[in-house]
């Protein structure tokens, strides 16, 4: 079997070893769940929003090293951002913040972006879409 993780950057490994913001959130304002256990990746992302600003983000992820690292990174990136700013975070930005991902693992960054969008969509559903 190949070993794509030998190509993981130090930053990916650092987030994998010490993931930030792990765990569930009590009464989150938005929850996004993406991926499929059949494909080996499930990401759950929770956000707390105060006056249009994401004040807190947490995650739970079933997946490979890259899936865990991108989850950790995206929760760090959204904190303190407005919903509008958070919607601008692309999968590429997440991957770049981790000093890149192996090509075969880029789908993990896509999952992180999708999880964030899903959490924001959920926030809009719960609180009315008055910011767009």
């Amino acid at each position: 079997m190949s070993d794509p993780w030998s190509l993981y950057s130090e930053k990916v490994m650092e987030h994998f070893k010490n993931p930030r913001n792990v765990g569930e959130m009590e009464n989150p304002d938005g929850v996004g769940r993406v991926g499929n256990p059949v494909c080996g990746d499930v990401m759950e992302l929770y956000i707390r929003v105060r006056e249009g600003i994401i004040t807190e983000a947490k995650f739970k992820t079933f997946g490979c090293g890259a899936a865990i690292a991108t989850s950790s990174m995206v929760t760090e990136m959204v904190k303190g951002k407005s919903i509008e700013e958070a919607l601008q975070i692309s999968n590429k930005a997440v991957a770049e913040a981790l000093d890149g991902l192996p090509q075969a693992k880029m789908h993990c960054s896509v999952l992180a972006e999708q999880a964030l969008r899903a959490a924001i969509d959920d926030y809009f559903r719960n609180h009315g879409n008055n910011s767009q």
Partner: peptide, 27 residues
Amino acid sequence: EGESMLLNLDLEGICASTGSACSSSSL
């Protein structure tokens, strides 16, 4: 998931293998 177990084992100096797709380029 297998790869995340393998990576953690590797950090402890243990080399093993997995049948997870995440350890290869196929899905």
